[in-house]
């Protein structure tokens, strides 16, 4: 069963990778950003399964992006694999350090504290006139192990790079979900004390989740910086975090794949809304979100399981009496 799921996932990724050759270039660029953002969403799914929702995940996203941009600005290193890993490490280290504080918080307080952290980074970036303040600055084009594609080829290469990272992340997160630490998510949301009675430290489990989601957001930010070729403090602003939470709820916490489908769907809906009604696209976006929440309570991911006439997993716990 597990191997079948993995095999199926691998097939889908290969199919998507090949299809990029035949897709119009604008769609490839849009999907590149959508999938880079999907990594952040994947990190949020990990936290959400435990009932935690940070309103400041853009903190790690911006750190990953700025790490790539700063390396390009101040060092001769251009290799995309090196810079993306550097972004991941930078975000991971920050997540580890502030995790000591954040892991003690739950519910809305967790959300607000992470919001405060990201807004402090935003304030610092806006103050950094050497880095262009709110205008941000250009990110140097990367090389792929010495290969420097140009133009359309570069966009394809970037898409495959993003896809590669997505495949690895999806696999790793899948493994994590089935591990002891990962499978504690739902029990932790339902009742932390019972989990502690099992001899596990809840704070430590949360800390681990924070680091994983921070690393994922860092990779997402690093890839987005390479794709957009520009970074600015807006990447750390709370509306960016809000956008990620938005996509997470749209996608649902049901499965790993939902994060990618949800992120792509979000970018497409937004892009179509902007093209159709340039003056009222927020109205369309808001309505789409509202309808999803009302009629697809478990997110887009549940569509698939519904079609297969199976109950969606994991079961949503009503927020009422417990």
């Amino acid at each position: 069963m597990l191997t079948r799921a993995n095999l199926f996932g691998a097939l889908v990724f290969v199919a998507v990778a090949i299809s990029a050759l035949f897709l119009p270039p604008w769609l490839v660029s849009l999907a590149t950003i959508a999938f880079a953002n999907a990594l952040v969403v994947l990190g949020l799914v990990i936290l959400w399964r435990t009932g935690l929702v940070p309103f400041g995940q853009a903190l790690f996203y911006a750190i990953g992006a700025y790490a790539v941009a700063l390396i390009g600005r101040y060092t001769p290193i251009r290799d995309v694999f090196v810079v993306v890993l550097a972004g991941a490490v930078a975000a991971g280290v920050v997540a580890y350090v502030i995790g000591f504080l954040l892991a003690r918080y739950r519910e809305i307080f967790f959300a607000m504290l992470s919001l405060a952290m990201s807004m402090i980074l935003y304030g610092i970036l806006v103050k950094s006139e050497a880095l262009g303040s709110t205008d941000g600055f250009h990110v140097e084009a990367g090389s792929f192990l010495g290969w420097r594609p140009q133009g359309a080829l570069r966009n394809l290469a970037l898409f495959w790079l993003v896809l590669g990272f997505c495949a690895i992340a999806a696999w790793v997160v899948g493994v994590y979900f089935r591990s002891v630490a990962g499978s504690m998510a739902i029990p932790m949301r339902d009742n932390e004390i019972r989990v502690e009675f099992l001899g596990l430290s809840v704070d430590r489990l949360v800390h681990l989740k924070l680091v994983i989601s921070g690393v994922l957001a860092g990779i997402g930010g690093a890839l987005a910086a390479l794709a957009v070729q520009h970074v600015d403090p807006q990447m750390a602003y709370w509306t960016t975090s809000g956008g990620f939470v938005f996509v997470t709820v749209l996608a649902g916490a049901g499965s790993v794949a939902a994060a990618f489908v949800g992120s792509l769907a979000f970018e497409l809906v937004r892009s179509i809304a902007v093209a159709l009604l340039p003056g009222a696209w927020q109205l369309i976006l808001g309505s789409a979100l509202l309808l999803t929440i009302l009629f697809l309570p478990e997110g887009l991911g549940s569509l698939y399981s519904r079609l297969r006439r199976k109950p969606a997993a994991p079961k949503e716990q009503p927020g009422g009496p417990s």
Binding site: P24, P25, W26, L27, S29, L30, I33, G136, A224, A227, V228, Q229, H230, V231, D232, Q234, M235, T240, G243, E267, R270, S271, V274, A275, P278, G279, W281
Partner: peptide, 23 residues
């Protein structure tokens, strides 16, 4: 073809590509 500039920089760049390549 009117386009709204509001949104993140990533969105602005995406919409620019859409204008040039799609439209």
């Amino acid at each position: 073809k009117w386009v709204d500039e509001a949104g993140s920089t990533a969105q602005v760049v995406t919409e620019f590509r859409n204008l040039v390549q799609r439209d």
